[in-house]
Write a protein that binds this DNA or RNA. Sequence first.
DNA 1: CCAAACATACCAACCAGTTGGTATGAACCG
DNA 2: CGGTTCATACCAACTGGTTGGTATGTTTGG
Lengths: 215, 215
Amino acid sequence: MTPPKTASSRTEATRARLLEAARDVIRAKGYAATTVDDICAAAGVTKGAFFHHFPSKERLGLDAIEAFNDMASRLFAAPFAALPDPRDRLLGYLDVRIALLNREIPLFTCLLGTLVQEIHATHPALRDACEAGMASHIAALTRDIAAAKALHAPDAAWSAESLGYFMQSVLQGAFIFAKAKQDAAVVAESLTHLKLYLVSLFGAPAPETKDTPRP
Amino acid sequence: MTPPKTASSRTEATRARLLEAARDVIRAKGYAATTVDDICAAAGVTKGAFFHHFPSKERLGLDAIEAFNDMASRLFAAPFAALPDPRDRLLGYLDVRIALLNREIPLFTCLLGTLVQEIHATHPALRDACEAGMASHIAALTRDIAAAKALHAPDAAWSAESLGYFMQSVLQGAFIFAKAKQDAAVVAESLTHLKLYLVSLFGAPAPETKDTPRP
DNA sequence: CCAAACATACCAACCAGTTGGTATGAACCG
DNA sequence: CGGTTCATACCAACTGGTTGGTATGTTTGG
């Protein structure tokens, strides 16, 4: 599979495996209930290797947050970003999020939302990292929202940023119900309502069939 | 304050103090990070008293969920329940939730949402209790939603229950951002968007001024 | 005086982090 | 090229402190 492996790529691979293990185990069991040994077992290394790469469990958390942010940025710099109308980019974003739901619950939920809910009062460093990551994601959304608002609802009373937080609140809250019901369907239904709200604010997009140009 | 106290009311008071301590400490620190000693300290009793009243930490969690549900039912059997139009009852419900935000974060957030997010995969009994409590609250909302839909949007494609979950998702998700930002304002803004959505579905209510009857 | 309500002292299991050591591969030197 | 050197990556065993839970007292109300 990977026969020629230099020392530095090997160490990076181990570090990456620990970060992936942290991402998945913490999303499943929460931060406090996840032990360092849990993460080591999931990554297939021992505790010695863990503390060779990370000075503490909290620092692993911080680095896992950063890695998750990188993944999210890559994921949502997606095809819909090329659509000309910002409203359609927002609806495309929600369609992508709906399409991601065909997985196990720990795989489509948000590490930052899970983490910050649990540790907001006990681990300020982790909380601030989560806040910054979510704010950055929302800032990207807010740019499209502001453009869509200028185009389709210039006189609306709400701010573009507040709608960005609203959209993410729907997502984060729906994840909670998916965990409670052990079923992702509730997320898809809530995102459908969210799309309806966006349509009520910005109007409906043109139909998908490209062969029906409008005069 | 309460000088004449029978034995049974005294023991009930201790039990209630433990349940309140659990409710507040768990909302602040999460379930796993909350130790039995934490709860005992917050309630002003020792571990002996704790295990006299509860056989285990998990059982305390179950009973705290039940107590929280009772409180929520009482809180939201509120004045707005008397409004004739179910749409106005829904908007009144949201106004009450907005009015509750003038408190510390651990005091207006939802114990069940906090708990289930953290322990959904590790404590099935707690998860099921949270799911049942939230489902019951949503069922109450759904009754008003169904009535409002029959009245104002009979042909809409969405189900009343899905809108109930959507409303609660907005709340739960907004709580996450309040914790991340250490600021409740984001909850109020998201609930304002939610009210806008309901108005887009059901129409706006009559203005509050009762002296302006409409022709 | 008795039983329920609470306190104190304690235990076994667990957990984050440490310690001392080994394997591996690259770099340098002859 | 071949052997020594050395740093990095990793491992197994251990430690000090913490945690849920228990065992055994002591107080209190009736």
